[in-house]
Amino acid sequence: MKAAVIVFPGSNCDRDVAVALEASMGAKPLMVWHRDTKLPALDVIVVPGGFSYGDYLRCGAMAAHSPIMREVKAKAEAGTRVLGICNGFQILTESGLLPGVLMRNKNLKFICKDVHLRVENAQTDFCRKYAAEQVVRFPIAHAEGNYFADAETFKSMQGNGQIAFRYCSNLGEAAEGANPNGSLDNVAGVYNAKHTVLGLMPHPERLAEDLLGGSDGKAMFDSLVEALS
């Protein structure tokens, strides 16, 4: 598998996701600077977390218009898998690669903690090593992760298996009390219509090693390696 991580000024999870990718695929991913305009042949592109360009505007809005994102969009349209984590998810919605938007958390505060997620669609290149409805634990760390899509869009997303993860209790119930940020229907991550682009607010790369408190995130990188190698 060949992977690239996009680095914007202000990205700060680029190294973390590179470490997780390397642990699963046995090679370092390519680190690509925001001003670059061309990408080589790749299997997966990761848009990492952080505060791209400071995120002083709406999160991800500046990055969506960066030189490299034109190329990421072209690659995504040609079928290259794209994974956006946290700020990466915000950038992918701002770029139009994923439906919906991410608003301020309901409590208006930054939240960093572990959450439980239910795998809603395990039949994708990102999640094939998870079981359907498996409950996993990933951390979140964001102030703008409150997912919203209009009713019509959301209905078609649901019909097309585009909901990737939902916030849930440790027993797998996607109840209101398990929703950390006010997201519509507890949505934590979504796919594009072809299931080739995934965006999620929680950080799989942060719990991909037992020493750090858990390794549920590792299966996502292992899934990509298995599917794309």
């Binding site: 973390d16 997780a20 930054f110 939240i111 960093c112 903690k113 951390p139 750090l212």
Partner: peptide, 16 residues
């Protein structure tokens, strides 16, 4: 308080 701080970025926080 500490839930408002990102205490895990950089991927090396062993005890939070």
């Amino acid at each position: 308080i500490y839930q408002q701080y990102d205490h895990m970025v950089m991927g090396d926080t062993v005890q939070r």
